[in-house]
Amino acid sequence: MRNEAEKRVIRDALGIGIATGTYGLSFGALSTTAGLTLPQTCVLSLLMFTGASQFAFVGVVAAGGAPLAGAATAALLGSRNALYGLHLARLHRLRLPRRLGAAQFVIDESAAMSLDTRNEPLARLGFWAAGLSVFGCWNIATLLGALGARALSNPSVLGLDVVAPAAFVALMAPRLRTPITWWAALIAAAVALTAVPFTPAGVPVLLAAAAVVALSLWSSHDDERRVETDSGEVPRNASHVDDTVPEERKVG
């Protein structure tokens, strides 16, 4: 028997799955218009399975960049998934074989759904329910989007070349919460645009990433000094977990 709270978690998870399905549709369409085949598109959703990274991969390829530059950008964007482990490892305490399976479902949505720290079984249910529901919807939607786009003739006439940057705007907006995130965005944009005329496609994005890693290291060094002097504030952690979940879907 499932109680009310469990039902609510599962209902929320299904809602999030359907919402991310709409990203999946656009991803499928974008990926095939970028020149990837149908199997390549579906394999990305099955195996890479982390939305922003997949958009970045096909976005770089569509812009004429080397596929490996796309892979590097995708991996850098996937770095945030590693941080979710901080909270999730404590929650699940999984041994190796199960951990290998759980890892694939570590994404923005499942991490956000497992934030209920007062009720661990419910948080674990949230992780699995969201992970599996997003996985199902995402892959089905990818296939449908890819099939749909194959039926179209000239993507640039339809404005499909704007889908990727528009998707990035939607993905970035909820992350711009503090002045330092704005600075990171502005510096990255400036570095990337400056590098465009001098480097092959795909490289400007990686240079921007390098510049911002340097900025983060410098600014965290600065933070440390501040904490030493007034020893008050505890750095926020895990609160960025819910970043890409749409506002109305946020849990907890």
Binding site: A52, A56, G59, V60, A62, A63, G64, T73, L76, L77, S79, R80, A82, L83, D161, V162, A164, P165, F168, V169, L171, M172, R175, L176, I180, T181, A184, A185, L186, I187, A188, A189, V191, A192, L193, V196, P197, F198, T199, P200, A201, P204, V205, A208, A209, A211, V212, V213, L215, S216, L217, S219, S220, H221, D223, E224, P235, N237, H240
Partner: peptide, 30 residues
């Protein structure tokens, strides 16, 4: 703290860079 900072800022930076390059560039031209 450094790991957390990088993981917070790196996605924002990459998305910003992807937006501007895919909006304002064609191959190596602005």
């Amino acid at each position: 703290r450094r790991v957390q900072k990088v993981a917070e800022l790196l996605p924002v930076a990459l998305l910003a860079a992807l937006i501007v390059t895919q909006t304002f560039s064609k191959q190596q031209e602005l």
